[in-house]
Design a protein around this nucleic acid. Sequence first.
DNA 1: GAGTTTGAAACT
DNA 2: CAGTTTCAAACTC
Length: 938
Amino acid sequence: MARHLSSAALLALRKWRLDDELQCRKSYRGTKPPGGARAVVETLGLDAGALGDGDLSALTLPHNSDQFTSSELETLVNIQAELDRLNSTVGVEGTLEEELEGGGDSLTVGETVESVVTVVSEDHGQGDVAHSPEAILPEITEETTTVEDMDMHEIEMSTPSPETGDPLQQQEISAKQFTSGSNNLTFTSSTVTSKTTGSSIVVIQSPVSSSASVTTSPSFTPKHVTVSAGQLVGKIAGISSNVAISSVPQFQSLAQTLVTAKSADGNIVQLRPANLNRPVIATSTAGSLTTANLQGIKPLQATTKRPATGTAGQMRNVFAKVIITGNQQGQQGQPVMLATSQAGETFCGGQPIKIISGGGTGQSNVSLLGSPTKAITLAQAQQMGLLSPAKLQQILPSSPAKQSIIVNKLVSSPVKSPAKITMMPASTLVKSPTKILPAPVSGVTQLKSAVSIASAVGGIGGAVNTTVKPLLSPQKVIIRQGSLKPGTILTSSGGTGQVIRIPATQNVVGTSGNIPQLQVPGGRQFQYVRLVSSSGSNTSTVLSTGKSRATTVLPVNAVSGGKPIALAAMRTQQQAVKMVPIAPATTAVRTVVPKSAGQTGQRILIPASAPVTQLRAGSNVSALSPTAVNQITSGTTILPSGASSYVMLPAQYVQQLQNQSQQQQQQSQQQQSVLNTHTVSQSSSNSGIGAESHNQSRPSVGTRTTLEPNGIRPRKPCNCTKSQCLKLYCDCFANGEFCHMCNCNNCFNNLEHEEDRQRAIKSCLERNPNAFRPKIGKGIVGDERRHNKGCNCKRSGCLKNYCECYEAKIPCSNNCKCVGCRNVEESCDKNTLRDLAEAAEVRVQQQTAIKNKLSAQIQDIAFRPPPPPQGGTRQPFNFMTQEVLNATCLCLLAQAEEAERLDSSEEEAERFIIEEFGRCLVQIIECATKTEANSMPM
DNA sequence: GAGTTTGAAACT
DNA sequence: CAGTTTCAAACTC
């Protein structure tokens, strides 16, 4: 199947490209110079019905990582080369059509199919670019599904800049009609990729709501994509790059947006999730992406065969992948804007997309094919939650060499903790102090993911210099402080649509008073939030992980005053931020309460799942600069570590339920003088509220046993008194959480004692490398849970909560060393089932015996010597004696019981009984006939 | 709520 | 690795 899909994908891609070529030819004939820029945008539909929030399984790619091998990439390259030849050929429509006809037959793709739409800006003067497989990775998942609908979207690409070197290109861009006819291919474009200068690729992956919403539903709003050729990528990756894109597509259902960019060095950087429902603005200041060269974008929305049971309201995940290959002549400072026209320009499906060059003079002089860079799709990895976006970003940008990464399918595992993979790009590891991560994540998952990624990368040729380390590896990330202006709105659309708002008027909670707040309404967990702002570009990425396994990437759109904020406007500050992800074993509620009183540093708290999240940062944080900030894991907490250092914590630790957040706000209001306690709690599937105890201002919180609004039992606050909450005695610490709202004394399990905490973590890990891993794991057999270490109970009989096994509601296993254990698995259930089965079988046998007996009785009655005829021939009804009737009724009853036993429906039972009755009648008649026959001679 | 019990974690 | 101590949660009153 995988191979089949792969072939289908290739074929689809081929067809699509040919079709696109044909359309481009038709649209731009005469105006488009040979080798002119070409832009194609494709959006793919992904049925949300199959992909519920958090249901990553739907996103699971059936094909292995080796599905798209280098040879297949070669094929793609060849296809591209063919297209190039076609470009240079006049009057190829017929051929193209033939190609389309031939290649488009019965193309079936998975329900979750991703195709890459390529915006290619071919180089006019630099045609010597080698044709290499660029970012085109149709990602096909699940079973093959025939595409029924294909909605086309128009993408308008315009270069407002009068300085555009090639007027023809402008003209071409103005001509935005790409009305490629119906396609029978379902593509799920999960990424929008713009490649500039032959080496820069921006991938914007934006799942959108249902296709209806995308194509016809008014809910789909035009989106702006401002591609900033700026230095965002480069800054993030620590390498020079000319590409910067901030996109904010919105996903209504399975919100996973992946925005990646490939720097000039060929590094792939995930920039931000795209929200198709929301304006996406990218500003290319460096001009590396020249939209002038982009002739068109052909958005394609594919609708899978899955019956559209829902209206627009039903969410269909639509991924838009746009690959923009622009020929840039090295001119910088040309803003490029890719925006969907809000005017509602409809293109076949009515999804308008505009690509507007921001007046830069840069020209895209790079042929799409010419780019040596190859396929890039790590979206699935993220979507599956296997590869945290943060990690992805870290990995991709880190490799200095041009890299092609294909991550078709990583390990699909329930993603309890968003960040399960610790990847350390060598280049990104800078001088920031090493942080020991408790990272009590599922080691298996992590390892698999890492391996998968590594293998995937390696399969492409090992061009990626990515260092993937298993969990517990220290992760160093330097994030430079940028400017996050108040009034910035980070818009993310998850299933509920989330908005991180940094109102300009919003009061800063921090002591500095300039700290903006990021409010993240909605109950989703943000896997990470990346705030990237630089002179060149700003990228804010919010990755949200829903409660479900699905890893959701929420696009964050920096908007000022409701309008897109020019990312370039943000200034860059060179404060380094240390990211210290502490991955809990599970998506436990994490709460981080930064106490910033008197501290010069700032902290940013981004609750993972809190409906309302506040991100508070010190005055310095307000200027959190994206330049160096690649990503901030959701619920990331940035705390000052030194004058310019910040420690960023994963979102899990800072999630907060909305009500709690509100309560905290109220408390904070009441305690304005304190201004130190900010609580962001995050709820998780299995854990409660994280708690951080502050000796100074911590409000005394008693044991909270009440359930959260979502029904999740909040985590109990600890009561540590002597351990400083830096020993595994402390549950908070053991769970990799910060203490918050605890009753502990002299707590060091907080941000203020990060060094001590890290030291303690290190110590614990030295004693037990698995100290922070979940104690309860799955047994060898099946999904049976078992205590990894086992209990050692002596007196409790393992029937009290002293016993960890009993507390976890799992029977003791062989790992346990308990004495007098009574916490044994009851096998009565199985016996009961067996007994029931046996009883049922016996019953059936009994019923069968009864039926046979009755039948025999009937036979006996039938062949009983007839009574002396009393004036007339014995008719069949004469056999309807009381005995026969009784026997018949018994047969019918037996049949009814049988039907009941089989749990048959009423209709079936009736049918059985009637049939039985029919057989009885037949028997009676036959008996009568035989009796008649026998009596005839007589 | 105080005191006791219990077992894991830490220590020797 | 085993024994002891420490610790905090669970439990009892």
